[in-house]
Design a protein around this nucleic acid. Sequence first.
DNA 1: CGATTAATGATAATCGGTTCTCAATAGTCG
DNA 2: CGACTATTGAGAACCGATTATCATTAATCG
Lengths: 128, 128
Amino acid sequence: MERKTRQRQVILETLRRESRPLNPNEILALAREHIPRIGIATVYRTIREFEKEGKIEPVFIPNKGTYYEIKCAHHHDHFHCRICQKIYEVECPHSAKLSEVGNGFVVEFHEITYHGICPDCKEQTGQR
Amino acid sequence: MERKTRQRQVILETLRRESRPLNPNEILALAREHIPRIGIATVYRTIREFEKEGKIEPVFIPNKGTYYEIKCAHHHDHFHCRICQKIYEVECPHSAKLSEVGNGFVVEFHEITYHGICPDCKEQTGQR
DNA sequence: CGATTAATGATAATCGGTTCTCAATAGTCG
DNA sequence: CGACTATTGAGAACCGATTATCATTAATCG
């Protein structure tokens, strides 16, 4: 039967605290701040479990791989910062309009990924 | 100096004829209809070359990998059919509106991937 | 507190995708 | 037509991501 381990607690806390999609390596690095000897296998195992339990869900970023975020009710899109490489959640202002592309295609859902510079990096690099 | 080989001709023809993004395995399979002994290494080599020459460009589909299409001037989006797994080009009706997400994020470009059923599969499966 | 056994950490194995190696093939040009 | 050499095909090698293995650790419960 399922046990409440420090590793699982820390991984879930990390995903909650960051409130942005994290990939397995990011989760590992952040979790190691609290459990230095945690291994990548535990991260993957815990991800699989949380996903099965419906606690988290995958986010597929084009050309970047799979990230995971706390399961969330409302539809939103994602933003990839080309400086720090972090993924952020952003609001989707067009969900209603994006259910049609015409020409006989049946749209069931869509994903939008924005690319650019995040607020933190904009400030730090002086770019605007 | 650069040589005009049958392999290169067939690969470019294939991408032109299909007029949808193809991944290396799809290119290989279609090219083999004309050159049965063509190998996957040649496909990858030719892709790299065509990309360098600006003839084709990559399309990154979330959770599906990298596809390639003939370089095209106007912005468009992509559609992934969950039945036949093909990727199609579709028009982007919102390009102007999608340059802003607010909150200090600087959007440089975006990608939209639609998922659903393509016209061919809709007809064949009787789904509507 | 123990005993039980689920979970972990380290590492090997696997997997798809892509690149490299090298002998054989085939464009190109004189 | 040759000679030259870029290109090819086949398979090995490589790569990052993910999973499996297994001895050790630690959560749970009587």
